[in-house]
């Protein structure tokens, strides 16, 4: 664990964080868009390095906002958030170098429709390319080889020159994943990446992500609509309801365990969801 970290441990806090393996820590986070209605209320959350963490909730429960707090695209109105020992702040140079290492896949994927697959995923390499070269779209052979390797990894090896608007929904998601992986990320944030897909394609996409997560040693924080799917892939699942985290559960063996309070039995947890219509 320590051997994989070449940089010297400088501060006590940093040493402590490595010791505790925590990569994202939220303490009493509240967030709002209009200073009146909170979309998130007093969220406490701790994500382990290299784990697969899922956030589940209905539409409008504030789960997308949670991801945007982690990459600094939004600031909390209350509480403290630490991502890899730093407070997210997009205008801070130090945090910017961390942003390069956070792959963010928004719900609408944010692909460039008129560009090719390869051009889209090379965007992930931009932080490593100088301003002059990137203006002329010049990438080193090393970067292009790496990008092609990742295309193969996500199963798009023969589609590098296709334009995005020619791809299927599943293929588009693979491109978005590839763009994030080209960043050589430490964290991947994915917002409802499989919500609009059929069951078979959804599992294919989740398998691609799970494999990348395992082989590249990343932390995945993913927002889902479907609790069953989340439990299948994630180590831990936080359930958000109306901006509050009501449960933190996971599967141990064949049992669902409540990590947050330990107050709920498996039956009670399942009963909580049986009333909720899932799509």
């Amino acid at each position: 664990m320590f051997a994989t970290k070449p940089s010297k441990v400088k501060t006590l806090g940093k040493a402590f964080a490595i010791f505790t393996k925590t990569i994202v820590q939220m303490n009493g986070i509240s967030a709002s868009y209009d200073s009146k209605n909170y979309v998130l209320k007093d969220i406490r959350m701790s994500v382990d390095r290299g784990s697969n963490y899922a956030i589940v909730g209905q539409s409008g429960s504030g789960k997308s906002t949670l991801l945007r707090l982690i990459n600094g695209m939004m600031n909390p109105s209350k509480g403290k958030i630490m991502v890899d020992y730093q407070t997210p702040n997009t205008s801070d140079k130090k945090f910017k170098s961390l942003m390069h290492k956070i792959g963010y896949i928004p719900q609408n994927l944010g692909l460039i429709k008129n560009s090719t697959v390869l051009e889209n995923i090379l965007i992930g390499a931009l932080p490593r390319v100088g301003g002059f070269n990137s203006f002329f779209k010049r990438f080193s052979d090393l970067e292009i080889d790496n990008a092609k390797k990742i295309l193969k990894q996500v199963g798009l090896q023969d589609k590098e020159n296709r334009k995005i608007y020619m791809l299927s929904g599943g293929e588009k998601r693979r491109v978005a994943i590839a763009r994030a992986l080209v960043q050589k990320p430490e964290i991947i944030l994915a917002d409802e990446i499989v919500s609009e897909l059929d069951h078979v394609t959804a599992r294919e996409i989740m398998d691609v992500l799970a494999e990348a997560q395992a082989t590249m040693n990343l932390t995945a924080i993913m927002v889902h609509h479907d609790l069953q799917l989340a439990l299948e892939y994630a180590d831990r699942v936080a359930v958000i309801k109306e901006g509050e985290k009501i449960l933190e559960i996971g599967v141990e063996g064949d049992k669902i365990v409540d990590f947050q309070s330990g107050n709920y039995t498996q039956r009670e947890i399942l009963e909580m969801f049986s009333g909720e219509p899932e799509e």
Partner: peptide, 28 residues
């Protein structure tokens, strides 16, 4: 706004954002 958001979150420079998102998206 989606691609602007997604690529902006990577922390790329403004010139890179223009070259890789703004121009291709508005080129036609």
């Amino acid at each position: 706004a989606d691609p602007m958001d997604a690529v902006g979150a990577i922390g790329v420079s403004k010139l890179q954002l223009i070259r890789f998102v703004v121009l291709p998206e508005s080129a036609s």
